[in-house]
Each structure stands twice: as structure tokens, then as C-alpha cells.
Design a protein around this nucleic acid. Structure first.
Length: 372
DNA sequence: CCAGACGTTGTT
DNA sequence: GTCTGG
DNA sequence: CCAGACGTTGTT
DNA sequence: GTCTGG
């Protein structure tokens, strides 16, 4: 199935990466328009996206008839992951993980999906890739799965960069050839997952909540050794156009594009990304499964050697505050009451036990030294 | 007719 | 809001 | 999806 | 075991 993704590009770069050929040939190449979610919700780029977050979603601008000037045919509307049906009662944040995915096999029968689909609420969920856990004898190994046109290998002494592979003529719908160096990140090939969305209107008449579910299918052979379900991937511009264009492509035709696909690349990644608070770019970096796990100490050193980035309130990678409870890099301590009091308790307990000169090598001390 | 569900996962 | 089960 | 919590009191 | 938070 699909319960975790990465989507780390900035809005502008996502728009660039989603440029498309207008149906009106005279208009030529277009970029979708970015529309921030109503009601102060926001998209934050992240290498570790969990359900409940807002992520960019492509839809037809015809969904905004009368509400919005539609200067292009497509709009990128960040939406909450986890579909909140329009009839939902009560707090929509209480909608559980049950609507993160929509099984293609039953989507035309089930009320939760059928109704929005018949309203044309078909969308394309944008992501750098998604994660899947292979289970084996009680162990779980996460894999990152992404477009075959990307290579998620970090070069030495450089930030995350992407090498372009030879272009598959069947998949060249969003390739930005120019500005090779400066827009290297922007030319990342996003994964396009078919989805269904709905709009929930709160009883107090405040801003509506847009939300989506990722459509899943039985896994294709490239993926089934990891997991038996996979998201429905749209692999060229014709498929994307048919899925988005609800006004001209009826549902029965559009669903022909919902099927298992083969053109994917994947590699194992660190188990640390299982915790969705871990937002390091390492989430998508390959790990060698033959090697024994790196000792915590070296992970810590690696983290300390990362260049400090600007203050980031949304935890992309560089913690700027002392991670008093967190025992691994790039974690942010929970701001909840419970954690706060737990921290205080733990600190107090440790202080009480500790001998003055005992712990020269403790991670906490190293962090403090570094920050100071 | 009304009441109650509306969904997915993995595991045994 | 709409469908299913009783 | 996974990880982590799951609780109450009185006092500053 | 089950729910919440991310």
C-alpha cells in the first residue's frame, strides 16, 4: 500500500516539474498554478511525509469554476492526506488512517469514494517517491520507490543531487532540459499517483478542508517482492490528462489508467525513517543491507558534520534546539505536555544517578558542545 | 420505515 | 450525503 | 505507514 | 491491545 511519501521540493520547483502541453495548442507549454490551501493550512517540503500532512495535488482548474480565475488548465492544490468525506461529522483531524488509501477494486462501489469520483474529483498526488516496508520474520525493512528517471544517490561533499538518466520517450512529459545546473533539483522526476479527493465544509462555515486518498492496486512484479499493494502510478501526460479532465473524460474511461505499473526504481533506506519525525534527507538515501548497522556514534558524527541550515520550524533536517530526549539525529522533541514532563523527569533521574566525570562520550554532551 | 455505516492494514 | 441491513 | 503513549497529584 | 501524533 502507500502510507508514507517524500516530497521535498519547493512549490515553484514543483510547478516547473509539472509543466505540460496545453490542450489548446496555441497556448503551448503551461505550468500549473499553485493555490495555497484555504484556512491557513500549508504544505511543507519533507523527506518523510505521513498521512495527515498537506501535500501538493494536481487537479483540473475546472473544479474552481466561478471561484477562481483559471489562467491555466491545471491547479496544484495542497491537500490533507487522508480523505475526509464531505458528510463527515465532528473534527476532521480524527479521521484515521483508513482513508489514506483507496482500493481500486472497490472504489466505484464504496460511498466514500464513489460519490466524489462521480463528481469528477480525480486528482494526481505529487511526490518524489513513496516508502514501503518489506516484512520478514518480524523485521521491517523500508524501501524508497521512485521514478526510474531519478537517481537518489548523494554525491560526495555535496547536497542531494539528481543525475538525469536517458530519457524514455514514453515518459518525457515534464522534462526541463534547460538551466541544467541551477535547476537540477527542480528537474527531479516526480512520481504521479492517481488519487481521489473530497471537500469537507466545517459546520461553522469556516474554510473548507481539501483532502485526498491514494488509489492502490495489486502490486506489479517489480514491487510484489516488497509488498502486495502499490499506488496507481500515471506514467505519461496522456494518462494524467485523462485522469484530470473529468469534464471530457468520463469516469469509466479514466479508470482504464488505474493499473499496476512496472517503471519504478527502488532501494532500501534507513529504518530510522520509520519514525515520521525523522526528516533528514537520509530518509531517501540507499543503505547497504549487507553491512552491519552503523554504530550510533558514527551516525551522530555524520549529523554533526552536516552544515547548519537556517532555522526551520518544520524540521526538515537541522535541529537547532537541544534534542534533550531524542536519541538520534534530525529528530525534533515533541512539544506535547506529556513529552515535556517526561523530559523533565528523565533529566532529573539521570542527574540524580550520574557521577560527575562519568559520561564524557554521551551524545547529549556532544550536542551541547556543538551548539555552544 | 429508521439506524448505522461509510475504511484499510496485517496477522492468525 | 447515500447506501445497506434489519 | 510506524512509533510511542497509555496517568494523576500538588507545587512552583 | 488500541489509539494518537507525525
Amino acid at each position: 500500500m502507500c502510507g508514507r511519501t517524500a516530497c521535498a521540493l519547493e512549490p515553484d520547483d514543483i510547478c516547473k516539474s509539472c509543466s505540460f502541453n496545453s490542450k489548446t495548442t496555441a497556448k503551448g507549454r503551461q505550468q500549473p498554478v499553485w493555490r495555497d490551501p484555504p484556512g491557513g493550512q500549508k504544505y511543507y517540503p519533507s523527506y518523510n511525509v505521513a498521512p495527515g500532512s498537506h501535500t501538493p495535488v494536481l487537479i483540473s482548474s475546472q473544479h474552481y469554476q466561478g471561484e477562481l480565475d483559471t489562467i491555466t488548465e491545471r491547479v496544484i492544490q495542497p491537500m490533507r492526506w487522508g480523505l475526509v468525506p464531505s458528510w463527515h461529522k465532528g473534527d476532521p483531524t480524527n479521521v484515521g488512517y483508513e482513508t489514506n488509501n483507496c482500493r481500486a477494486e472497490g472504489m466505484l462501489e464504496k460511498k466514500t469514494y464513489k460519490v466524489p469520483l462521480e463528481k469528477g474529483r480525480r486528482c494526481v498526488v505529487l511526490a518524489d517517491g513513496f516508502f514501503e516496508w518489506k516484512r520478514d520474520q518480524g523485521k521491517k525493512q523500508p524501501y524508497f520507490i521512485y521514478s526510474p528517471q531519478d537517481t537518489w544517490i548523494k554525491k560526495e561533499n555535496s547536497d542531494l543531487k539528481v543525475k538525469k538518466e536517458p530519457i524514455d520517450p514514453d515518459q518525457n512529459f515534464n522534462v526541463e532540459e534547460e538551466h541544467k545546473e541551477e535547476t537540477e533539483d527542480a528537474s527531479r522526476k516526480l512520481l504521479m499517483m492517481a488519487g481521489v479527493f473530497d471537500v469537507w465544509h466545517p459546520p461553522d462555515n469556516s474554510a473548507p478542508v481539501y483532502s485526498y486518498s491514494v488509489i492502490t492496486v495489486e502490486s506489479s512484479p517489480v514491487m510484489s517482492w516488497i509488498h502486495h499493494r502499490m499506488p496507481a502510478i500515471l506514467t505519461n501526460d496522456a494518462e494524467i490528462e485523462e485522469w484530470l479532465n473529468f469534464a471530457e473524460v468520463p469516469l469509466r474511461g479514466a479508470v482504464q489508467n488505474i493499473r499496476p505499473t512496472e517503471s519504478l526504481q527502488m532501494h532500501p533506506v534507513t529504518t530510522a525513517m520509520g519514525n515520521s519525525r525523522y526528516k533528514s534527507p537520509d530518509c531517501v538515501q540507499p543503505v547497504d543491507l549487507k553491512k552491519p548497522k552503523a554504530p550510533v556514534n558514527s551516525i551522530m558524527k555524520n549529523w554533526l558534520s552536516q552544515p547548519k541550515k537556517e532555522q526551520n520550524d518544520h524540521g526538515l533536517s537541522s535541529p537547532t534546539k537541544s534534542p534533550s530526549k531524542s536519541n538520534s539525529p534530525s529528530m525534533r522533541p515533541s512539544p506535547t505536555k506529556q513529552s515535556k514532563s517526561s523530559n523533565l523527569m528523565m533529566n532529573w533521574l539521570q542527574k540524580g544517578k550520574r557521577e560527575p566525570d562519568e559520561d564524557n562520550d554521551s551524545p547529549a554532551k556532544k550536542i551541547k558542545t556543538c551548539d555552544g
